[in-house]
Design a protein around this nucleic acid. Sequence first.
RNA 1: GGAGAGGUCGCAUAGUCUGGUCUAGUGCGCGCGCCUGGAGAGCGCGUAUGCCGAAAGGCAUCGAGGGUUCAAAUCCCUCCCUCUCCGCCA
Length: 425
Amino acid sequence: MLDIELFRNHPELVRQALKKRYLDTAPVDQVIELDIQRRERIQKVEALRAERNIVSKEIGSMKDAAKRQEKIEAMRSVGEAINTLEIELRKVEAELLDLLSSFPNILDENVPVGADESENVVIKSVGDLPEFDFQPLPHWDLGPSLGILDFEQGVKITGSRFYVLSGAGARLQRALIAWMLDLHIRQGYTEKYLPFMVKTETVYAAGQLPKFKENLYKDHEEDLWFIPTAEVPLTCLHMEEILEETSLPLHYTAYTPCFRREKMSAGRDVRGIKRGHQFDKVEMYTFCKPEESQAEFLKMVAHAEQTCALLGLTYRVNQLCSGDLGFGASITYDIEAWAPGCGEWLEVSSISNVTDFQARRANIRYRPESGGSTRYVHTINGSGLGLPRTLIAVLETYQQADGSVVVPEVLHPWIGSDTTIRKEY
RNA sequence: GGAGAGGUCGCAUAGUCUGGUCUAGUGCGCGCGCCUGGAGAGCGCGUAUGCCGAAAGGCAUCGAGGGUUCAAAUCCCUCCCUCUCCGCCA
């Protein structure tokens, strides 16, 4: 959520950001108008409440019964006026909050302007495209032929877009998770094990509701939502808190499954395990002071890159252009790993500086050491790689002519003695 | 799921029965000052957040949300959470 002060003092900044995202700027004026209405009503209702407070106090100490009754009658009508105004005020405030919540974050000045993903900018490429002296297989062929990936079983027990990892496949994913968490711990993150279901308030605070309601799974009986990303519970760990400046920055990492109901567009990403309703992810998350957030953001990008680099994957870093940027992000870098089998760059990580956008919604502030009023923290989130896509990249990159897959060395401590995945008979 | 006890300004507590001197008291902690050779003790002052306002100041918040009332921490209703016991369970 944006700061109402921006609309009061610098509406042109908001309009400019909207234009860069190719969005309508008209709601800016609606916000300004609603804000004026809100303040008018607050002033009226508070003046009446002040009057009632004073007179009610007088009534308490009045001895003359007739005069007392007179005052009570007078305050009764004041009370009614207050009620009427309060209802109006609540309505205006709800409208304002609703509208304000619909604005995306202001863009960082370094974000290139562009309409859609075709105008994203590759800012870094690491590693050459691997060459094979045989035809590399896509994972949807490679996995089943090795007996480590079973689509039919997933469909049988749940439905389309669900799959089962088996044997060395399941173990490889578990190795990736454990290795990534340990890597992030070395990079300075504190590991968290989180609830995978959260209450409505939490999903709102993290900014997933109301906008992304269609993409979420919910248990209606218990009124709990399945997390679409660890970002949701991680953000809300400090919801409604005032942190000490000395405790910042806070770095957290967590492994969670992610659940997304999103309608899969027909014909797109239908093959393989690239896009499913359930997937695993290791997440990184930072709470920091505003003046630190850009440096922290770049640090996190480097941390995610390191994951790809240590796995020996060919990858590139993409800066998202204005039109492709997510709702809460001020700036986002995507990391894409090369999958030689399906011949595709796979988005394995997305790192965003959300500035104070989530912190304002979740009401996460810190108290400056020097004193003065509290300030909103900045938050940065990034995937310490999404598992299915990392799994794809690893399998397809390390496949051999005989159909086996050599497990990258960094994963060996978790994989057991057999570091080559062969067809299990 | 059942029974009971609770949730108050960082922490601990008073206040709730009997609505109005509660502008929420007290202790601890913390900050500033006095005192001191220095420290401690002692003394004094201060010590939540948000909103409205140019300011003075005002309004709101006692787990959350409703209600009763001129007036609610206090009375009523609903919900959430914590603790104890029982049940169930990995």
